[in-house]
């Protein structure tokens, strides 16, 4: 929101995309899943959350404006409403494109006592990024998160749908090397897992 009013300027905002200008990217599989989801609820508004997960998977882990617009279009809701929902929840990545793997470091009480901060500092130094940032090679995004509900394994980190802990520096070195060599995105995998949870057994398409 840096474009403040300019005196004497036109102060025109870009127009919201028109439906016919959208470049729809949902795969056939995604469309089938969405159609199945619509049968679960009395109205389409209820599909917004799972549809956003589908979009997060289809758009490679990041919900761009186009992704939000596509969800809005497919559910016949307003763009703003979809964006409002997506930006409310922290697990939808709406701020900027994320890396292939999202490393989420728990810094809540138990992890903190068991040394989460040195772990976080080590990761920041090793990856060369701060919290909320993505490495320049686009592999890792580092995040600080609240309690992950696995205090017995503190200090704990989450990558995609996997918990790792207790972690130490050597463990992290190994893990980062392994993740770097994995071509598949664990962010997309997590999104897919969540979509599958929303679907009934018969509707799953694997």
């Amino acid at each position: 929101m840096s474009e403040l009013i300019q005196i004497g300027g036109m102060n025109e905002r870009p127009k919201p995309p028109r439906p016919e200008d959208l470049s729809l990217r949902f795969s056939d599989r995604a469309i089938r899943e969405l159609e199945a989801l619509e049968t679960h609820y009395p109205e389409r508004k209820a599909c917004i959350l799972p549809a956003l997960w589908i979009a997060q998977r289809e758009y490679g882990g990041y919900l761009s404006g186009e992704a939000l617009a596509e969800v809005a279009f497919r559910l016949d809701r307003s763009y703003a409403e979809i964006e409002g929902v997506a930006t409310f929840y922290s697990m939808y990545n709406t701020a900027h494109p994320v890396g292939r793997h999202m490393i989420e470091v728990c810094t809540c009480l138990t992890c903190q006592i068991c040394g989460a901060y040195p772990i976080a500092e080590y990761l920041k130094e090793k990856l060369g990024v701060g919290f909320g940032e993505t490495t320049s090679d686009g592999v890792f995004t580092l995040h600080e998160v609240e309690c992950l509900d696995a205090c017995d394994r503190a200090p704990l980190i989450q990558v995609g749908d996997e918990y790792y802990g207790p972690v130490d520096k050597a463990y992290l070195d190994n893990l980062l090397d392994r993740l770097r060599s994995e071509a598949a995105s664990s962010v997309v995998k997590l999104a897919d897992e969540i979509v599958q949870v929303h679907l009934r057994e018969t509707e799953r398409d694997r």
Binding site: R13, K15, P16, E83
Partner: peptide, 10 residues
Amino acid sequence: PTSFQLTEFE
């Protein structure tokens, strides 16, 4: 309270 992607509130 804003519009979608800060586009015009038309």
